[in-house]
Amino acid sequence: MKHHTIPRVIAKLTIPGIILFGLYVQFHGDYGPGGGFQAGVIIGAAMILYGLIFGLDDLRNVAPQKIVTLLVAIGFLLYAGVGVVTQILGANFLEYGVLAHSQKDGQHIGIILVEIGVGITVAAVMITIFYMFAGRK
């Protein structure tokens, strides 16, 4: 699709907006609709759109396959890691209250970290699936 001008220009215009919106959904999930899952899907879709328009090689430069594969695990480990940290601090698994001085601050920190973990895993899995399908030629 590299030689089609209109998809290329539109993609270049919209991809930054899509990623920015994904980040908004990620970090605004406590206040509005959305959260890590939706944000991960949106950012994954932006990367896949990039890959569809500019080709797999360009996408490999932006999101190297090895790093994406690592991120699949890192997101999950971040989520579980928050649980382990709360256990070390003397509370139950995933009981965020102990992460800060007050219960509410702890909840905020915990939820944001956990949602980032969800977002990373979901985005990385989506990009991985695209790599696997698009790489079969």
Partner: peptide
Amino acid sequence: HTGMPNIVTAVLASYRGYDTLGEVGVIF
């Protein structure tokens, strides 16, 4: 309890944190 205006997020990530961890495990 949580200071979250969005109840859905609070339920998913805090009250039902185990379930969501499991969901991420499924995606993983």
